[in-house]
Design a protein around this nucleic acid. Structure first.
Lengths: 118, 118
DNA sequence: CGGCATCCGTGACGATACTG
DNA sequence: CAGTATCGTCACGGATGCCG
């Protein structure tokens, strides 16, 4: 039931797919990490840190854990010296990137107000 | 430097369309505001505040100003007593919503599998 | 190399009161 | 009704140091 036109009076943002998706990619670096993986996976910890610019170990580490917990990325650890860990996108992560990639396209199209020369 | 495949060594996230798009919708409520407008525009200030749940006047006001400055939403003020202001999406805002709407769809599809019990 | 522990700064956001 | 002003809080992220 209740399949009538939604009214703003009782509508809610919480609980929408929107809200859920945003919770996954919130944060200064979440999307950058995913973007990095999409283009260069598998990627090692320090590779990614360099790519992201000024991110700190702590922040990167925390973000990677969250993304892993959310099922978007996979962590592959090689028990050796020196340690080696590679990150990559899961199937879920890849499916999300297909959508997020369009955000990139949109941004490139519309940031023209401030075209940044290469 | 030829036009070979990009290497992670000198790639950068800053400056991508991605980065630009995210800068527009960052924040706890930015997307919720846009989403609200997409479904119910034009929307008045207090209507939106109720829709967004626990947002304060200050935060809502600040976010609306930013979105307006970014050209995503339009503000229509009616000089009368009591005051009346309506917000709606600009063409640019609408074009962004077409993309963001897919985030919603993705979220609805994938949040069912990993519902986190409260 | 790939982390974790700790301390700390900042800015987004909340609560409340007030104004045109 | 549609904000503005002021204050307080807290998560996010930065800097540094240590460890397997």
């Amino acid at each position: 039931m209740s399949d009538q036109a939604p009214s703003i009076a009782d509508a809610q943002f919480e609980g929408t797919g929107y809200s859920y998706t945003m919770s996954l990619i919130r944060g200064k670096y979440k999307m950058a990490i995913l973007y990095c993986l999409m283009e260069f996976q598998p990627v090692r910890f320090n590779e990614m840190r360099r790519y992201l610019g000024r991110i700190t170990d702590k922040t990167l580490s925390a973000n990677l854990k969250e993304l892993e917990a959310d099922g978007l990325i996979a962590r592959q650890e090689y028990p050796q010296i020196p340690p080696k860990v590679e990150y990559s996108l899961t199937e879920l992560g890849e499916s999300l990137m297909e959508v997020l990639d369009q955000l990139c396209t949109w941004g490139e199209t519309h940031m023209s107000g401030s075209v940044v020369a290469p």
